[in-house]
Design a binder for these strands. Structure first.
Lengths: 260, 260
DNA sequence: CAGTGGTCTAGACCACTTC
DNA sequence: AAGTGGTCTAGACCACTGA
């Protein structure tokens, strides 16, 4: 039997109605404009977790874009972990309250972003022969000169981390003043070094008397350790760091995506 | 003046000569076949760090593929950090001896892959009300039933980690026998749960008497801690883990890529 | 079965780098 | 100026999902 009313049927999961539009006059790539708008819609809650995005073909048509361009936008958000695509089903907003993936950032920037007003005390800033641990990590010849920087990072006047960095000495100068007013990575960026990747090792151990003293922890406290080798966009190793953090005040958070 | 010899000029960075070929009869996607061959060439040293890959157009022509397909293969390797692309320059193999990015794997699989013959002792395997810490992490209603598993992970008979896991109790059964013969993630995968992402927090602290006793460490030793919430491909939280590792025997290693 | 994303093609124009 | 990757288009066919 036909129903007596002609109420329009509503799909179970109505694709969200969004005000999406791209500006073809803008120098910003179209796929990037779209990705940014979708990301904003997710963060603002206009696209609720679990909701379907509507299929790529229609989305492309409604925006006046080609399907590959729309796919490029969606792919970038899938890579970020904001969306999930399943063949035969559609594209959904991930249910999770999404946390940002761990990025290759400096501790200084992380703390500043969290509103913790980081400050830095430079304890050492010299050049000298590289320890074997450093030449091995950076792939430098033995008995090579490196810049050595020891810093204490504080938030609200409280010690947070003791940072020891080693850089090839011909790479750039490290004025103590600039090291205290910003982070090491910001300084490197200003000198045209663009970081590309880093290899990190995180562990724990009891602090030495010196470390605990600097950090204001009781002797022998458990500390969080991190060693990092950073590489620039040409793949050259540009920095080795061996850092200790007050475990009572600091943890590493990050998000992992399955390597699909 | 013209040179008197007609020796053919050789580009500075001759694109590496590789035996690449795709099999169009294979069900494996063409871009994936190409990516795998390039990756193998890099690992085998046929493509040396810094060498140029040759431009996409020629590569596509020589393989009988379209340019977008070749780009998709190259992009997947750029995402893995094996290649770097620079406009106006070309595609280069990264100089770094590449380490694998940290993946969402189980400790069991990691240890097995390293040939360390992991074994597991299940200390607890029950269902009960979830602690507040767990309901909050998994987004479950309060006073909800969860499966609780406590395990001791050993390699060569030596304790390595003490693992506490909590799972929504309606998700699957956790037979003690299976937990001892494989990892938790393998067990979940066999039950159709496909992991998609995880949020992790890594820290350090002194171990409790119980923890140090189980791990065979002196009382009060520094331990490495990790909390993890895992999500499946629908974005549902499926597992919470609170683990402690012997810091003297275990570290986390991972690779970070700049979010370009 | 209809609808979805996954893969693939053969072009095009542009921006950037290097010489 | 020449060569590179970056972006974009308008189609096509296939594999998988779910009703």
């Amino acid at each position: 039997m036909m129903p007596s009313r002609y109420a329009p049927s509503v799909p179970k999961h109505e694709p969200a109605q969004l005000r999406l539009a791209v500006d073809r006059a803008s120098p910003v790539p179209l796929y990037f404009q779209l990705a940014r708008q979708l990301e904003a819609a997710i963060e603002d809650g206009e696209l609720t977790p679990g909701s379907l995005l509507g299929n790529e073909i229609e989305l492309a048509a409604s925006l006046g874009l080609s399907r590959p361009t729309v796919r490029q936008a969606i792919r970038s958000l899938v890579d970020k972990g904001l969306l999930v695509r399943r063949r035969g089903v559609g594209t959904q907003v991930v249910h999770t309250g999404v946390a940002r993936p761990m990025e290759l950032t400096s501790l200084y920037d992380d703390l500043a972003a969290a509103g913790l007003h980081p400050t830095t005390r430079v304890l050492h800033n010299t050049r000298g022969p590289a320890p074997a641990e450093v030449t091995a990590a950076l792939g430098l010849p033995e008995s090579c000169q490196v810049s050595v920087v020891h810093r204490l990072r504080l938030t609200r006047g409280e010690p947070m981390a003791y940072l020891r960095n080693y850089l090839p000495s011909d790479l750039l100068d490290l004025p103590t003043g600039e090291l205290e007013s910003s982070g090491l990575y910001a300084l490197m960026r200003r000198h045209g070094i663009t970081l590309h990747s880093a290899q990190q090792t995180v562990g724990a151990r009891s602090g030495t008397a010196e470390e605990c003293g600097l950090l204001g922890e009781p002797a022998g406290s458990a500390l969080l350790t991190m060693r990092r080798v950073s590489y620039d966009d040409r793949g050259r190793p540009v920095e080795y760091g061996a850092h200790v953090y007050r475990a009572s005040r600091y943890t590493f958070e990050f998000r992992l995506l399955v390597h699909g």
